[in-house]
Structures are given as C-alpha cells and as structure tokens.
Design a protein around this nucleic acid. Structure first.
Length: 581
RNA sequence: GCCGAUGUAGUUCAGUGGUAGAACAUCCCCUUGGUAAGGGGAAGGUCGUGGGUCCGAUUCUCACCAUCGGCUCCA
C-alpha cells in the first residue's frame, strides 16, 4: 500500500516537473502501476527530455513538498482546471457533486489519492524515468494520442538496481534473441514481415511438439482433418468473416487467369476471388455438412494444425508471439447440448495436461472467462438462451476444475463466450495460448444440423479450441520458459558426440549408431576438445559425449551434462540407463 | 496504424563531414588436442533504402522501410 502511495505521488511529481518545463502541457491520468507509475500528457517529448524531467523531479522532491487533499465543488474544479481539457472531461464524468483534488507545491491534480504526506517519504534515488510511449486518451484509437511517460519506483535504490538487473537477465531469455543464437528461425523482409522461416533446429523442435500433439489427440478421441489454405470469397461471406473480420484479412486473390496472362494484360473471361484463411472453422463446418448427421454420431472432435494468415497491423508484430502467418493447433467439437459439459471438461483436462507436460506451472498461466457485454446485446450472434446456458456452464466447469479464473465482461467474441489461458513472456506480457470457445455464429449461418432421436432436425453446439493457440506463439513462450535449454525430450539435438582428435571419428560414428534412437550429432570439426565443448554448451545440447583414446580403448564414453561438470567415463549401456531415469 | 527509440560485415559492437574497423563465425594453412575459445593468414560492408544540403555524406537533413518498447487490436 505504502509503495503504491509513493508511486502514485511520484506520478504527480512527474506531472509537476513537466508542467514547470513545458507550461502548455495538458494532463490526462497518472496512476501507479506494477513496479512504478506513468502519466499520460499531451506534450511533445523526445527521449532525451527524460533526463531533464528526472532532474527537475529530484529538485522538487528535495523541497519536501506536502500533499494536501481537498474536496471542492465541481464549479470550483472547473475553474481550477480551466486550461486542462482532459481534466474537465474527467470532472464531468464524476457522479458525485464534489471532487477530490490534491495540491503539491504549485501543482494541483484531480485525484482521489492516496498519497504520501510529503515528498520526504520518497527516496529520490529509488526511481527512474524509464521510457516514452504513445497512449490513446481513454484507450480509444479514435481519441488523440498522449505521450505516456513511464517510471520505475521502489523502496530503495538497491531494490531499483535489483529490478534493473532482473530485467537484464530476462532479456537474455528473450525468444527473439535465443532464436538467433540457437539458430531456430528468422524472418526476412523479402519473404514478408511477420512470416517465420524455421531453420533445421527450429523445425525439429516444431516437429517434436507436433508429434506429441498428434499422439495425444489420438489418445483423447480426436480425429484429424486437413483443409486448404485458401477458400472462395463466397464461403467467407457466408461465414461472416468477409464482413466482420476484414480488418485482419489479406485482400482477395483474383483467380480467373494465370500470372502470365495477368502480366500480358490479357482479357479475363471469368473471375473468382479467393481468400487466405484467417481461421479453419468454415472448412471444418464444410466437412460436417458434407452429409446428413445423426445424434448417434456426435460428438465429432476434429483437429488440424492449420496454418492461417492474418493481416496484423505492422506495429503489432512481434517475434514469434504475434505474426501474420501462423499454425493453430485447432480443433472443433461438434456435439449435442447434453454432451457440452463433458466435452468442456475433457478440453480443460487436456489443456492442463499440456501445461504440465511442457513445464508451465499453473500459477504462471492466467485464466479468463470472457463473457458478453450485458449493456450491448445487439452485437452478438445467437440467442440469449444459448448464451446464458453456455456462459453458466463454462463458469461451472471452470469452477469444478479448480481453475483460478477472472471473469471479464464484454471480452467475449461476437460469436460466443470463451475461456482463455494466457502465459506471460519474459517481459511480463500476457499472450493468449489455449482457448475454449462457443460458437453460435457458424452453426446458424451454415445451417448445421443433425437428426435427433425424435427424427427432428436439431442444431448442434460447436466448440472451438486450441491448446497451444499457435505453434509459433507457444514455441516462443517455450523458448523463454526454458531459456533455450530444452528438456531432453524437446531438444532438437539431444546428444552431441565430440571426438577428441581425427583418429576418433570412426569410434564416434560407432557410438552414434548405438544411440540411433536419439537425435545425435557428431562434431568432427578440426578443433580442440575445449572449443567443441564450449560450442556444445552454447548450443545448449543436453549431453556432450567426449570420445578419445581412452574411451576407444575401453569401449566407453565420457559424459558431460549440460551446464554441469563431467559425469565421468561410462559404458553406453550405463548412459542409456541413466537417460531412462 | 499511432507515439518514442534503433538500424555500420553472418553475429555482437567500435568509429568518422574527406568513400570504414575489432572480436567471434566463414574459408585456407599449421596444430592432433582431454571438459567453456590452440596459432597464422585470407575473404567479407554501395555504413537500412531513396531524396536534399555540401567541393565531398556512412556521419547533417527530409521521406520511406524494418526492428524494438508502448497504445489500439489479437492465437
């Protein structure tokens, strides 16, 4: 609580300093946040101004400014903030007759508090202005963009230093950095931004994960389907994507002629438009509707690692976590109403199993139940009855499964409520991975139906779900989670054999043959053994096997475990036994 | 898309108004090695792209592109 007061007070001092240095500045809001504070201000700043502002803040802090709280009438407040349009707007939004203001030195702010009594309580060495960013007023793109100044603040200088060190350490785990260092993937402007090119080791990692995924899906009663990358415009019009999702879709391909004909400007007789798929759902629906379905056939659980393309705005792209082409580990469950609960539970169990299998602790995953906005019922597909049922059953199942979830009103998709699982990256940003969603839109639009036990046509329930979310995003988070040092089963190279000299290459190959159940590589570069070990360690290979005269003689290997010391000489059989453990 | 920052060899980085350097990686030669870098040599850059200022620009300036941090949006 105290720290929050300090941080919040610092944001006022920040605003105070900006006002001194830039008298025309217009102030938005300035709260305390995790690890610090910010203030949104209409003022033009460059990063080099931060130093000036920080200096000013320290000057002000030294003056032992007292924070004085006062209730004033709205009329008075309007006068005080006459030249502050954003504050005036806030005043009007306050329901009460009076508003609370805080005065600190020559600076007055509309504010509920709480604050420290005086700047004496603030350690002027324990804060630091961090960075500038743009932020829309009230978080709305249509509003003007203010300049947000972020600051860090802690109890003491030591704590601040500690935090900065921690951030530095975290940056070393960044998947974009490790992706380069471990030679996993890259992007190329010439190929297209936001499109990932997976290198051999990255593709191997992907494949290991996909194999695991495939095996587990078969075990869990899923069937695989496979669908194209493009679909006719008519399909996307019918699904609603053409209308509602166009902001995130690549524009259509005109298909009425070849590229050659196009280049020759030949006349087009007939033309169709095709769109890159941003989602797999309509294709799966097409499979469903391909023949009449009986209540006896349900549920269908159809999974596909489907690569989709979304035209994300440039500024939103980021490493593997936000890209333009990505592969969802998608599945659709089409079932009867009486099967919904059971299916939801199965999916949640599956999701939890996946997190456990990849070492994500439940506390590092945040779960959100996204519900409809009760004040805006018109923007949603489906009827109230369906929504009430699905929202309450999602909640019930989430509770029964012991999920520690937050409910978020108005966060549902227009087509249905959902349960989202988000994982934090190394910089503390949350990324949606697993998701479990109801869909009232597609069954309606595609008139999906089955024949029930009374011989009547009935509309099935449709669930979308993804476990990883996308392979790209999940692998990005996985790289950070393990800091690139993957567990044995996930390592693209599991074992590297290092012959000491040229004379040991033959023996290295013999050893490799005995380990052919594993992903093994021989490093037969003409380098010293020290160098090979260094490279193997930097590559984060779980086991390095040194073979030289001694080992060749004794029919053994010398094992070195990643990050650790020499485990000593042993027979291959013994090494294999240890691996099993 | 918007606000801010960055952009020099494959990588990590120096550097300058007079057409660029280091380390590692690469290639060649020597070395035949014992648990985190053996030695020598060579090659490698239209200094993100395109305009402008200047006798001259990688350096100053403008525009664009990409990347990074935010905002908005999202798997």
């Amino acid at each position: 609580m105290k720290m929050e007061e300090i941080r919040h007070s610092l944001s006022h001092i920040l605003a105070y300093s900006v006002k001194e240095l830039f008298p025309d500045a217009k102030f938005g809001i300035g709260p305390s946040i995790e690890n610090g504070f910010y203030y949104d201000i209409e003022v033009e700043l460059k990063e080099e101004d931060l130093g000036k502002i920080e200096k000013k803040m320290k000057e002000i802090l030294k003056k032992n400014i007292v924070f004085k709280n006062k209730e004033v009438t709205k009329e008075e407040a309007r006068e005080i903030f006459a030249d502050q349009p954003y504050k005036l707007q806030l005043i009007e939004e306050i329901p009460e007759e009076t508003v609370s203001i805080y005065t600190s030195g020559d600076f007055v702010d509309l504010c509920k508090g709480p604050h420290v009594k005086s700047t004496k309580e603030i350690d002027s060495k324990a804060f630091k202005l961090q960075k500038l960013a743009g932020a829309y007023w009230k978080g709305d793109e249509k509003n003007p963009m203010l300049t947000r100044i972020y600051g860090l603040a802690f109890e003491s200088e030591d704590k601040l230093e500690e935090h900065l060190k921690m951030m530095e350490e975290a940056e070393k785990r960044d998947h974009r950095k490790l992706g380069k260092e471990l030679d996993l993937f890259h992007t190329d402007e010439e190929v297209g931004i936001g499109l990932i090119l997976w290198h051999p080791k990255g593709a191997m990692l992907w494949r290991i994960i996909e194999d695991f995924w495939f095996k587990k899906h078969l075990q869990s009663g899923y069937e695989l389907v496979r669908t194209p990358h493009i679909g006719n415009r008519r399909l996307w019009e019918r699904s609603g994507h053409w209308g509602f999702y166009s902001g995130s879709m690549y524009p259509p391909l005109e298909v009425g002629q070849s590229l050659e004909e196009l280049n020759n400007k030949s006349e087009v007789k007939e033309s169709e438009q095709f769109l890159l798929k941003p989602m797999n759902c309509p294709f799966h629906v097409s499979i469903y509707s391909n023949k009449p379905r009986s209540y006896r056939d349900l549920p269908f659980r159809w999974a596909e690692t489907g690569t989709v393309y979304r035209f994300e705005k440039k500024g939103e792209l980021s490493g593997l976590t936000r890209v333009r082409g990505f592969t969802q580990d998608d599945a659709h469950i089409i079932c009867r109403k009486d099967q919904v609960e059971e299916e939801l539970k199965r999916v949640i169990d599956f999701i939890l199993y996946i997190y456990q299998a990849f070492g994500f602790k439940q506390e590092s995953v945040n779960v959100y139940l996204s519900l409809r906005d009760p004040d805006n019922k018109t923007k949603y597909a489906g009827n109230d009855e369906g929504w009430d049922f699905s929202e309450s059953i999602l909640r019930k199942v989430a509770e029964e499964k012991g999920l520690n979830f937050k409910e978020e009103k108005g966060e549902a998709a227009f087509y249905g409520p959902k349960l989202d699982f988000k994982i934090k990256d190394v910089l503390g940003r949350e990324w949606q991975c697993s998701t479990l969603q109801f869909d009232f839109n597609l069954p309606e639009r595609f008139q999906m139906e089955f024949t029930n036990d009374k011989g009547e046509k009935e509309q099935p329930y449709m669930l979308h779900r993804a476990l990883f979310g996308s392979f790209e995003r999940f692998i990005g988070l996985l790289i950070e989670h393990y800091a690139g040092a993957f567990p044995f089963w996930l390592s693209p190279i599991q074992i590297k054999i290092l012959p000491v000299g040229e004379g040991h290459r033959e023996y290295a190959r013999e050893v490799a043959e005995k380990l052919d159940n594993f992903r093994v590589k021989i490093d037969d570069n003409n380098e010293t053994i020290g160098k090979k070990i260094r490279e193997g360690e930097m590559e984060k290979v779980p086991y390095l096997l040194v073979v030289g005269d001694r080992e060749k003689e004794n029919g053994t290997i010398s094992v070195r475990q990643r990050g650790k010391i020499d485990l000593g000489e042993m027979k291959i059989e013994e090494f294999l036994k240890n691996l099993e453990k």
